[in-house]
């Protein structure tokens, strides 16, 4: 008994249907799965690039030092030497881009207390004052130079 092509015709039809289904699956899958999915793992690889491309608000102390080298020098003599400029002056990336945008000077009456207001949870040895006893009604900057805070 020989199996002829004619006898297997129903199988061929089945194979064609399966192939069409596979092609449909592959086609739909390639349409629906984003281009870079699986580049590094089970996620969209391009997402990394997109997150990296976001703009920055804090320019970083190196950017400040490019122009304000006098302040950097002055700070070296004081205890605030390791504090980044933007810790007190706020985010200044826009000012670094366009120096004509002048930032507002921080108010030392508020600014200094953020760190130096007396608080029992602060580490021992960190210089603290109770501002209401220490300098009633005065701004810290009246006596202390923030870049070189020692009197």
């Amino acid at each position: 008994m020989r199996i002829t092509f004619k006898d297997a015709a129903h199988l061929i039809r089945l194979v064609i249907v399966v192939l069409i289904a596979m092609a449909a699956f592959a086609g739909l899958r390639s349409l629906m799965v984003p281009e870079s999915f699986g580049q590094y793992g089970h996620y969209r690889g391009n997402a990394l690039e997109e997150i990296r491309a976001k703009p920055v608000s804090f320019a970083g102390r190196q950017a400040c030092a490019e122009c304000h080298d006098a302040v950097v020098e002055a700070k070296k003599a004081g205890k605030h030497v390791n504090i980044g400029c933007e810790a007190c002056h706020g985010a200044q990336a826009k000012h670094a881009e366009d120096p004509s945008l002048k930032p507002t000077k921080p108010d030392t009456a508020v600014l200094c207390a953020r760190c130096h207001e007396k608080n029992s949870a602060k580490p021992h040895g960190f210089p603290q004052v109770a501002t209401k006893d220490h300098n009633t009604g005065m701004a810290c900057g009246d006596c202390h130079q923030p870049h070189q805070p020692k009197l």
Partner: peptide
């Protein structure tokens, strides 16, 4: 650059 929190940490 460093992170914003590290940049601002005094």
């Amino acid at each position: 650059l460093t992170t914003a929190c590290c940049e601002a940490c005094p």
